[in-house]
């Protein structure tokens, strides 16, 4: 078991004929993901990495039985691509694209929440169940099948955390990059619920950053509903207010969204907080020891 994706997940790439789409389709294939096709309007009949290209997601689903999509279309067209995947009945949509207008996501988010589908991202590295299925841009080799469920608002910082848990021999059940934007399809709480229910996941690592209140909400949920050990790290302790730190979502505004507030909320919920990004893996170990989980 794992969450969201596994060896049976059948994946298409929307935007497969683009440079990034083609490159990462190849990467996912090499990792062992069941990539089954791609979509680029007007390019039906072509092949990319040996995979068939379709004009619409509807066609792709009908002919390949795909149930997941990885989106690499340009930001201006990402909302449309997500809605197309949703309309075609895709269950897991991972939007990797960076720079999607927030107002587009207000509309998309509303549609997604009224459906059975799960949207990861946008502006995210994707999702991976080590050894089974990689959908996204993360380097596969740093991962190792194991017991830590990793969820994060940041890309490369997730790699850092994954590398640490791999080196400690813990490995990962599933790793999900939520995305760095103000509105993303999946929240920490959505994933906490799944990780808590997943038998393979023994501990959860949450990597947050300044801006918004997602970490505080997650902390409150952990205190009430999560029995598994949880560790966390918050990036941006030294970030000045009012400055957007790369991610559109990483901004302290009106005195809210500071790292201190978030860390206090996490600690109050009994979560083991890593003080340094170099010890995220150790924080997971400490959380496991505290709860007597091996």
């Amino acid at each position: 078991m794992s969450i969201l994706v596994n060896k049976d997940t059948r994946v298409i790439c929307q935007g497969i004929t683009g440079k990034a789409g083609a490159f990462h389709t190849k990467g996912c294939l090499e990792y062992g993901t069941q990539m089954v096709g791609g979509v680029t309007p007007g390019r039906r009949g072509e092949k990319v990495e040996g995979l068939p290209v379709f004009d619409t997601v509807e066609q792709a689903v009908a002919e390949t039985g795909a149930n997941a999509s990885m989106i690499f279309v340009p930001a201006a067209f990402t909302a449309d691509a997500i809605l197309e995947a949703l309309d075609a009945g895709i269950e897991l949509i991972a939007a990797i694209t960076e720079g999607v207008p927030v107002m587009d996501m207000v509309y998309v988010y509303d549609k997604i929440k009224r459906s059975q589908a799960t949207l990861i991202g946008p502006n995210c590295p994707g999702v991976i169940t080590p050894g089974e299925c990689k959908i996204g841009i993360m380097p596969g080799y740093i991962h190792q099948p194991g017991c830590v469920g990793v969820m994060s608002r940041s890309g490369t910082l997730t790699y850092e955390a994954v590398w640490q848990t791999t080196n400690l021999g813990l490995g990962q059940s599933t790793c999900v990059g939520l995305g760095g934007d103000p509105i993303v399809g999946t929240s920490f709480i959505d994933l906490l619920r799944r990780f808590e229910a997943d038998p393979l996941t023994k501990a959860i690592l949450m990597i947050g950053e300044i801006g918004g209140t997602a970490e505080e909400e997650a902390a409150a949920w952990v205190a009430q509903h999560v029995t598994k050990p949880v560790a966390a790290f918050i990036a941006g302790r030294t970030a000045p207010p009012g400055k957007r730190m790369g991610h559109a979502g990483a901004i302290i505004s009106g005195g809210k969204g500071t790292a201190e507030e978030k860390i206090a909320a996490l600690e109050a919920a009994g979560i083991e907080v890593a003080q340094s990004p170099a010890e995220m893996g150790q924080a997971v170990q400490r959380a496991m020891q505290r709860k007597g989980v091996k």
């Binding site: 890309g155 910082l157 850092e160 950053e209 990036a235 030294t238 790292a259 340094s276 990004p277």
Partner: peptide, 15 residues
């Protein structure tokens, strides 16, 4: 490379 890692690197320098 990466916003989260960049913020964390700043934090680590300060630490």
């Amino acid at each position: 490379n990466g916003a989260g890692l960049a913020m964390s690197t700043m934090d680590l320098i300060k630490l």
